[in-house]
Each structure stands twice: as C-alpha cells, then as structure tokens.
Amino acid sequence: MIEVTIDSIRVSLMSQHRIVVLKEENGSRFLPIWIGPFEADAITLKLQGIDAPRPLTHDLLKSVIETLGGEVTHIVINSLEKNTYFARIVLDVDGDTIEIDSRPSDAIALSVRVNAPIYVAEEVMEQAGLLPEEEISLTEGAGASTARREREEEDDEDEDLGVFTDFVEGLDLDSLLGN
C-alpha cells in the first residue's frame, strides 16, 4: 500500500464536477478521483477547519464509530474497476480489525475527521496514477491513459482550429472599435 495525502480538490468551472487529487507521500505520482460536490464540500470544510452548524453525515459516522468503541485505523483505495474506484474503511473494534466497503469520497471525508492515514493499493496507483507533467483533466475519466488520450485530442483540435486562429489574429480591432 502507498500512503497518500490530499493535495487538492479541483472544481470544474463548466460543470459541478469535483476531483480530489491524492499525492503519493514518498513519491511524485498523483491520483485524481472524481467525487460529488457534497463530499468535496465535506472534505474541504474539515481541511479548512470550518465546523458546520449541525453534524454532517461524516461527522455522524465518526460519532457512531467512537461511541461504539471503534477507531478508524486507516482507509484504503483498494480497487479500480471500469473507471470506478472502491475503498475500504479499516476499523479497530476491541482488538478486531473490521473492513467496511465505502466510496472513496466518503472514506476520505471520514479520514480527515479522525486524522486517519489514506492508502492506495499499488495496483490502483499503477493503473491510474499520474506523474506531475501529466495533466489532470476535469472532462474525462481519471486514468493515465485517459490523460494521454486527451492530450492527443487537444493536439488534433489545435490543428482543426488553425483557420479560426488565423481569422482572429487577422482582425483589425481598431477599425471594429471605431478608432
């Protein structure tokens, strides 16, 4: 397992999409994971030290676990299947280890509330991890092959837009503005 930290939460200006970007603790790879806006807000609020006036779902989950004598030891993003990430919340309850299936966004939101480490399975990082020079896109899936495919598509689009670029560069703005 690879320990990661939350690097950032990114927001698309064109849609409601959010991506939490996890960074490899002792390496240079990043793992972008699509999450919902509510989970993104729950993570961001806690990271910024802002308390909600009433407990959010993840605060409730934390309270239930603690009230029942459990402790979140860590969470792990353990699988990636058909562009869907899977996670496990790992608990210690009276010396027994219990793993609970979770969406990564919910597991991360809980981990920031209990200061539990976040891990990514090596095979998941191999499959979807990105190096710093690879672009993290907000329009497609989060795998490294997707980022490469998007760069290739952008190159093709740049070629197709050459006519428009020539047109815009050839405009005489002074005459259009009446100067």
Rank of each mutant, 00 (worst) to 15 (best):
D51E: 11
A52K: 15
A52M: 14
P53W: 14
P53L: 13
R54A: 13
R54T: 14
L60K: 03
L60T: 11
L60Q: 10
K62I: 13
S63A: 11
S63F: 09
V64E: 09
E66L: 12
T67I: 15
L68Q: 14
L68G: 13
G69R: 13
E71G: 11
E71Q: 15
E71F: 13
T73W: 10
T73A: 13
I75F: 01
I75W: 00
I75E: 04
I75C: 02
V76M: 06
I77K: 01
N78M: 04
S79Y: 04
K82P: 06
K82S: 06
K82A: 07
K82E: 12
T84C: 10
T84H: 12
Y85W: 00
Y85P: 04
F86W: 14
R88T: 11
R88K: 15
R88D: 12
L91Q: 05
D92M: 15
V93G: 12
V93S: 13
V93N: 13
D94T: 06
D94V: 08
D96E: 15
D96Q: 15
D96V: 14
T97G: 03
T97P: 00
I98Y: 05
E99W: 02
I100L: 00
I100S: 06
S102W: 04
P104L: 00
S105G: 07
S105A: 02
A107E: 01
A109V: 00
A109R: 01
L110W: 02
L110Q: 08
S111D: 03
V112D: 03
V112G: 05
R113D: 00
R113C: 00
N115S: 08
P117G: 00
P117R: 07
P117N: 07
I118Q: 03
I118C: 02
A121R: 07
E122V: 12
E123C: 08
E123N: 09
E123S: 10
V124K: 02
M125I: 05
M125A: 08
M125C: 07
E126I: 07
E126M: 11
E126W: 07
E126N: 11
Q127I: 05
A128S: 09
A128P: 03
A128I: 03
G129T: 04
L130P: 05
L131H: 12
E134K: 07
E134H: 00
I136H: 09
I136W: 03
I136N: 06
L138F: 08
L138W: 06
T139S: 15
E140V: 05
A142Y: 04
G143Q: 12
A144M: 04
A144K: 06
S145T: 05
S145A: 13
T146K: 03
A147G: 07
R148T: 02
R148N: 08
E150T: 10
E152K: 06
E152G: 02
E152F: 11
E153F: 11
E154R: 12
D155F: 00
D156V: 05
E157M: 12
E157A: 12
D158S: 15
E159F: 09
E159K: 05
E159L: 08
E159T: 01
D160E: 13
D160C: 08
G162Y: 09
V163K: 10
V163W: 09
V163L: 11
F164P: 01
F164T: 05
T165P: 08
T165G: 08
D166G: 15
F167D: 05
V168Y: 13
V168D: 08
V168T: 15
G170W: 14
G170Y: 13
D172E: 14
D172N: 12
L173N: 01
D174R: 06
